[in-house]
């Protein structure tokens, strides 16, 4: 299934996200031009889990924000399901999970997840049903009436994921969502995320600077290099699915990690 999706993606037709010659240059106050991304080409298939991997300054977050229509590229073209990112955002088809959970402190878990549904002006009953479903999906049913400060970091980020999925988006964009969590919580959330992905069949673009994380999660890992940010390699992750903790101890896993690490040498 994933294999088939990949083939169509590489053929360039029916790609969910099609990025062509995207470039981004920031203009500083001093009148200097700082290139953040140059000539990025990428096509992501529907239902694919893809990672944007690279050190800080490689433009991976910039690329994600361009897809999300939170930033406008200075050159190139980008299409999402045949439309512009702006059109897709206006239709509320993006779910974004940020580096921090970005929960509103004054809202309980339940009401935080409900926030996008309120903005969409869904009927109250529908909102309630979706929130309950999301709480169940991320395993926080008992914590619905807690305030964010009463939750651990891992639980807060689960709420962030639940909120992103609540609007039933076409595409889930995740910007280093687990980078602030400890190793144990992180590994647990990796498995949870894959389980949720399997259930919901979303296209996921996942930004990270953690090689093992990108290998464990993705169908493909896009390696970005800095100065200027550019796509330097795309690595197919051929590990079997569904992936559980044991995958991390497979020799193939270590080989893939080593291969990707090697692609950073001399950068």
């Amino acid at each position: 299934m994933a294999e088939l999706a990949k083939q169509t993606a590489s053929a360039g037709t029916n790609a969910e996200i099609l990025i062509e010659h995207i470039g981004m240059t920031y203009h500083t106050d001093g009148g200097e031009d700082v290139p953040a991304l140059s000539d990025v080409n990428l096509s992501v298939a529907k239902g694919e889990f893809i990672s944007l991997l690279g050190p800080s300054g490689c433009g991976k977050t910039t690329l994600l924000r361009i897809i999300a229509d939170l930033l406008q590229p200075t050159s190139g073209k980008i299409q999402v399901a045949g439309e512009t990112p702006h059109e897709v955002r206006m239709q509320k088809k993006y779910g974004i999970v940020f580096q921090s959970p970005v929960l509103y402190d004054w809202r309980t878990v339940r009401r935080n997840i409900r926030l996008p549904l309120e903005i969409m002006k869904l009927p109250k009953q529908e909102q309630e049903a979706r929130v309950n479903h999301m709480l169940e999906l991320v395993g926080l049913t008992e914590f619905g009436d807690h305030y964010p400060f009463e939750l651990s970091g891992g639980m807060q980020q689960r709420v962030g994921i639940a909120r992103a999925l609540a609007i039933n988006p076409e595409i889930l964009l995740m910007d280093e969502p687990f980078s602030a969590l400890d190793e144990f919580t992180k590994e647990k959330l990796h498995e949870d995320l894959l389980r949720i992905w399997r259930k919901t069949n979303k296209t996921i673009v996942f930004v990270t600077h953690n090689i093992a994380e990108s290998v464990f999660l993705s169908d493909r890992v896009c390696v970005l290099s800095p100065h200027p940010g550019r796509l330097s390699a795309i690595v197919d992750i051929t590990l079997p699915r569904p992936r559980t903790a044991e995958v991390r101890s497979l020799p193939e896993f270590s080989q893939l990690v080593a291969k990707i690490r090697a692609s950073f040498e001399g950068v």
Partner: peptide
Amino acid sequence: QPFARDLLKSYAAPRNTEFLKLRIP
């Protein structure tokens, strides 16, 4: 807090929503 406005923007929320649901509380 960082990204609080980006969050609303990603849902294409109008400006008054930003006031009512984020800035005022």
